[in-house]
Simulated assay, not measured.
Amino acid sequence: MGTSATSTVVVVGSGLAGFGVLRELRRLSPEARLVMVTLEDGHFYSKPALSTALAKGKTSETLVTTPAEKMIANLKLDARIGREAEAIDRAGKALLTTGGPIQYDSLILATGAEPVRPQIGGDAAHRAISVNQLEHYDRFRKELPDGARVLIIGAGLVGTEFANDLITNGYRPIVVDMLDNPLAQLVPPAVGEKVRDTLQEKGVEWHLGRKVDAIDYLQPSPGYVATLDDGTRVEADVVLSAVGLRPNVELAREAGLEIGRGIKVNEFGQTSDRDIYAIGDCAEYPNGLAAYVTPIMAAARGIAPSALGTPTQIRFPPLSVQVKTTVFPINLLPPAMALRGEWRQVESDAEGDKHLFVDSDNRVQGYVLTQGKCEQRMEMDKLMGKWHERNARR
Rank of each mutant, 00 (worst) to 15 (best):
Q103K: 10
G20R: 02
T52W: 02
F357K: 05
L240P: 04
N74H: 12
L95Y: 00
Q365S: 02
G385Q: 12
F328Q: 06
G223T: 08
K142R: 12
L218G: 07
T312Q: 12
K354T: 15
D197I: 07
P222E: 14
L157H: 01
W343C: 08
E347R: 12
E379N: 11
R83S: 09
D237A: 06
V37L: 09
M178K: 13
Y292H: 15
R393I: 10
M71R: 00
N74G: 04
R274F: 11
Y104G: 01
L308S: 01
E267D: 07
D165N: 10
D237V: 04
R394F: 12
D237Y: 06
L134S: 11
R393C: 13
T3S: 04
T62Y: 08
M380W: 01
L245Y: 00
I296T: 06
G159P: 01
N164V: 02
H355C: 06
V368E: 10
D146G: 04
T38R: 10
M1Q: 02
V238A: 03
P188G: 13
L308D: 02
L383D: 08
V238D: 04
A55H: 06
V116E: 01
G288T: 01
D177R: 04
T8E: 12
L383R: 13
R83T: 14
I215T: 09
R149T: 14
K70S: 05
Q270Y: 05
R23P: 00
V364N: 02
D273L: 07
P222Y: 10
D180S: 13
E161K: 06
Y285A: 00
L228I: 07
L383I: 13
G262E: 00
E379M: 15
D180G: 10
V10E: 05
R253M: 06
E31F: 11
V64M: 06
N181C: 07
R377V: 09
Y45W: 12
C374F: 14
G269Y: 00
R33L: 07
E61H: 14
D41P: 03
R393T: 15
Y45F: 15
E40C: 08
R172G: 05
P48M: 12
V175M: 03
A32G: 04
R90M: 04
Y171F: 15
V175N: 02
V239E: 13
E235A: 13
A283V: 03
D273Y: 04
A17W: 14
S106V: 02
R83W: 11
E258H: 05
L25T: 04
P145L: 08
K202N: 08
L183N: 03
L319D: 11
R80T: 06
L339F: 03
T310F: 15
E193C: 08
T8K: 08
T66N: 06
P311V: 10
P317A: 06
S272I: 13
R340I: 00
F19G: 00
S221D: 13
E69H: 01
N132P: 01
V131M: 12
R90S: 09
R340D: 13
T98I: 07
E375S: 15
F328W: 09
K93I: 03
D165T: 03
E254H: 11
T312K: 09
P145F: 04
A53W: 01
A155I: 09
P173D: 08
I120C: 00
I72T: 10
P118E: 03
V12I: 14
L34N: 03
T59G: 11
A148T: 10
T59V: 08
